[in-house]
Design a protein around this nucleic acid. Sequence first.
DNA 1: AATAACGTAAAA
DNA 2: TTTTACGTTATT
Length: 732
Amino acid sequence: MALSLSGDDEEYDSESEQQRAANRPKPKVGTSAAIKLPSNRSSSGARRRRTRCRKCEACVRTECGECHFCKDMKKFGGPGRMKQSCIMRQCIAPVLPHTAVCVVCKEAGKEDTLEEEEEKFNFMLMECSICNEIVHPNCLKVNDASGVVNDELPNCWECPKCNHAGKSGKVSINMGPGFKYASNLPGSLLREQKSLKEEGDASTAVKRRPDREETPRKKEKSDDPYYSKLLHHIKTEEEDEDPYEEEEDEEGRVPHFRGGVERRGRFGDPEDEADERDSRSSLLNPSVKTPFGDSDQSLCSSPQAGPSSEGGSETQEKGPRRKARRKRRLPNRELSRELSKALNQEIQKTEDCLANENRQPLKVEPQTENEEPQRLFRNELGDQRPHLKNKEMNGTPWELRHFYPSQITPLGFNRSTPTNRPVPPHSPPKCVQMERHVIRPPPISPPPDRLPLKDGKSHVIQREVWMKIFGYLTHQELCVCMRVCKTWNRWCCDKRLWTMIDLNRCTSITPLMLSGIIRRQPGSLDLSWTNISKKQLGWLINRLPGLRVLKLSGCSWAAVSALCTSSCPLLRTLDVQWVEGLKDAQMRDLLSPPTDNRPGQLDNRCKLRNVEDLRLAGLDITDASLRLISRQMPSLSMLDLSYCNHINDQSVNLLTAAGTTTRDSLTDINLSVCNRVTDHSLNFFKRCGSICQIDLRFCKQVTRTACERFIAEMSVSVPFRLKEDKLLQKAS
DNA sequence: AATAACGTAAAA
DNA sequence: TTTTACGTTATT
C-alpha cells in the first residue's frame, strides 16, 4: 500500500519520476537539507527556516498566475514540482516561525508583553546570522550587549558572541537567514549579475588605484584598524547619528532624482501638476491606493510592510534597538562602495557632459570625505524633444553592466552574512556571489519616531513634524538631507515625500537608482527618454505594486515591452508617447491578456485594463489599436493621440461607436496634429456622454466652422466653448 | 552557471 | 490532516 499510490505521485507526468517517487531510495548525493547541518557549518546550529511575514506588500498580493513558479503550480495547471512561491509574492521581510524559541530560556518572543519600546528589544527573539542561535538579548547576560542588529531582516543580528569573536559570516556566504536561494529564479536577473561580475570587476579594479590617492581616507576605512575604530566609535557613542554611517552611502548616491521640478507643498496638500493627479489622489486618499487594504501601509513610511507581529516575530517596531548597538556590518561593503563609486564617477562624467548641453548643473557639496560630490540635479521641465535622447552616452549599456550590484540589493547583504571584515580590495567575487541571491526589494523597518542624540536622549521634535518640514523640500534637497544622518536618511525616504519620482531624460538608469526607486515606492514614476532596459523595467514594475502613473515616453519598445509580461493592475496613467517601434502589433501585445493562461486562470483580462489616461502621441498606430483600446480599457478617460498620423475619422468612429465603453468613459481626447482627422470626427464626438475636451488644434482638415457648429449643436445639452482655435472645451 | 527538482518545515 | 514554499541538491 503503497507509497506509490499516494496522491502526490499521480501528478508526476513522467513515468520515471513516478518510479523514483515511489521507491525513493534517494537520488544520489546527500539529500535534502533544511534540517540537516550543512557540512560547512562548523560551530553552530542549524538555521531556522524563515517563513513569510504575511503582511508585506508582496505577501498580501495574490499570485500572478503568470510567472515561472505560478505556472508550475498545480492550481495553474503545472506539475507542481518546483514548489516555489509566486515571484510577485516573495516576502520582503521573512520572519522567524512561530515555533522559534530562545535557546537559553526556551521561550518564544515576549516583546508583545512589554510597553516600553526600549525594553522590547531585549525580549524579542534575535537570530544570529553567523551562529544561527536564537536568543532573547536579555537572556545573554552579556553586559555590553554589542550585537549588531540587521535592520533589514526582522529578528536578525550578529550576536555579541560572534561579534566579539570577530567572526566573519563565512558559513553563510550563500545563506543569510531568511533568504531564499534565488537560484530558482529563471534567469534574466542572474545573467545580468554575471555581466556585473565581469564588468564590475574590471571597472573597480581599474578605478581603485586612482581612488586610493584621491580619497585616502575612504581607503583607510576598508582597512582593518580603521574599521574597528569605526566600530568602536559607533559602539561607544551610542546610536547612529553618525554621518559616516554606512547606510547613508546608498542614498548619498541617489541624487539622480531630479525631483524638485516643482516645490511640493506639505503633506496632504501637494501642489502637484495636473498630470500628477493620480499621485495626489492616492496621497489624499490612501484607501483608494491599492486593493490590498493597506491604507496604513501606504501611510506608513516604509515602502514595505514591517515584520509580522505574530508570534515571536515582532522586531522592527519602533526602534527599540537603541540599546543594542546597531550598525550594519554588511559584507563587502567596501567592495560595493568601490563598485558604486566607480559607477558614479562614470555617471558623473556622462552627466557633466550633458550639463554643458542645456542644463545647469547644481553641484552639491560632498557630505563626507568619501563621497564624491552629488551630481547635478536638473531642473528643466520635461519637454519632449527626441533629439535629446542620449541613449548610449558612453557607449556602454549600463543596465547590462551593473544591473544588480550590491546597492540595489541591500538584502543581499543579509542573505549572506557579513563576511571577512577587511575585504581585500581585489576580491569582488563574494560580492557577486551574494548578489545572486537577492530577489527582494529592500525591506525598510519603521523609522524611529525621534532623532536620537548623542547624549542618549531624543530630540524634542517628532518625526511627523520633521516630515512636514521635509514636505517643503525638493527631491534634490531631500537627497542632501538624507546624508545628514541615518535617521534623516530613513525619514527622507518616506514615500509620502516621493509620490512622484522624475527621471525624465536621465541618460543612464543605474542599478542604484532602481534600488532607490524601490525604496521610495513612488506612486508615479517618470522614466521618459531614458535608456532603461526591458529587464530593468520589468524588475522595477514587479516591485512597485502601488504604481499608478508610469511615463515611458521616448523609451524603446524593447524596454516598454516589459509591460507585456509584468502585471500592473493598478496603473492608471500610462505614457508611451514617441516610443520607438511601438505600432499596432506591439500595441496588441501590450493590451492582450497573458498569452499562455492556464485553465483555471481567473484573470483573463487586459493587463492595462484600469488605465484611465493613455498617452500615445507620435505613434504609428491605426484603427487596429484603437479597436483594441476601445474594447480593453473600459475606464479610459483621457486619450492622447496627437501626432498620430494614421489616426482618421474612422478611428474616432471606433472609439465612440455604440457598445464601446470608451464612448462613455472618454472625457478628454487629444487629436492635435492628426492630419487625417476631418470635420466629420466632430459628429462622432457628439455621442460621447462624458466628453469635456477635444483637442483638434493643428488638424489641417478640421475647420473652425465645424467646431463652431459643434458648439452650437451641443449647446442644447452641454455647453462647449472654443478655448483656442480648434480646442473645444466644455464650459463648466 | 542556470535551472529543475526535492524533502520537509511551517502554517492552515 | 493538507497546503505552501524554503533552502537545499540534482540535472542540464
